[in-house]
Write a protein that binds this DNA or RNA. Structure first.
Lengths: 134, 134
DNA sequence: CCGCATCCGATTGGATACTG
DNA sequence: CAGTATCCAATCGGATGCGG
């Protein structure tokens, strides 16, 4: 019981268990784990593409023409290391490599849906959005 | 109709309307708007704190002791410019400044909840997670 | 108490060119 | 086709110290 966290009364649906009771960005915190999954520019777009089914490297490039090879490579590499995407290589001829979501990767779907919904909600807000901040 | 997007059949609950039919990270895309709201280290933690009610600058620092003044300042500034947080200053004595979520800011709650849930789901996955990618 | 100014190392992502 | 290798500018976040 070091780190007594002030008089925090934790909101049960915002922070349902101990794993979220942290006072700093902690890789073990579920929120950080989810953020890590979608982290990085282009990542949600790559995930969206793969939600439709397996794709090859060049199909991904074609779907996202402005995404550079390097960044695509990095995104795939990262998602693979997180076990969210898997690579399947057919060593025949013509040899073919495809990337697809793992079961864990599929579980990101509700999060993408919620991101979209949240964005729509924010958009419809009466916002003097770019007012000066004094 | 420039940019014909291959033979994309859009998944209706993943991309419910035209705003999400983009092939690059686009500030107008709802997903990007939601990501922008929670973007940056510590941001979700600051939002979590404010979900409980208004707090002063130093109360935020106390709740998140390892967050530096500078970064806290930047986070608050950004959230204010996005109209997600508002500043209220009482000019009496003692003068007091509090930060609280705007109605738009409150709308981030379901997203934080979904992030948490997603993180839990990912955690419970049988993952040979750090297997070599070779 | 509520911040701002400055400095700085690390990470990011894009451009370009090249390889198995 | 499926990537790698370099290089580089910009952004980020943490540390420290100062100011209203």
């Amino acid at each position: 019981m070091a780190h007594q966290t002030v008089s925090h009364r934790w909101d049960i649906d915002l922070v349902p268990d101990d794993a979220g009771r942290t006072d700093r960005p902690d890789a073990e915190c579920p929120v950080e784990m989810a953020l890590a999954a979608i982290n990085g520019r282009w990542t949600t777009l790559v995930l969206r593409e793969l939600m439709h089914g397996p794709l090859s490297f060049s199909e991904l490039r074609a779907a996202l023409p402005q995404l550079s090879d390097k960044v695509l490579d990095e995104r795939i590499r990262r998602l693979r290391s997180q076990n969210l995407v898997e690579r399947r290589a057919v060593t025949g001829f013509p040899s073919r490599v495809t990337y697809s979501l793992t079961p864990a990767g599929q579980q990101l779907r509700p999060l993408l849906v919620e991101l979209y919904r949240t964005g729509l909600r924010l958009r419809h807000n009466p916002s003097q959005a770019h007012a000066p901040l004094a």
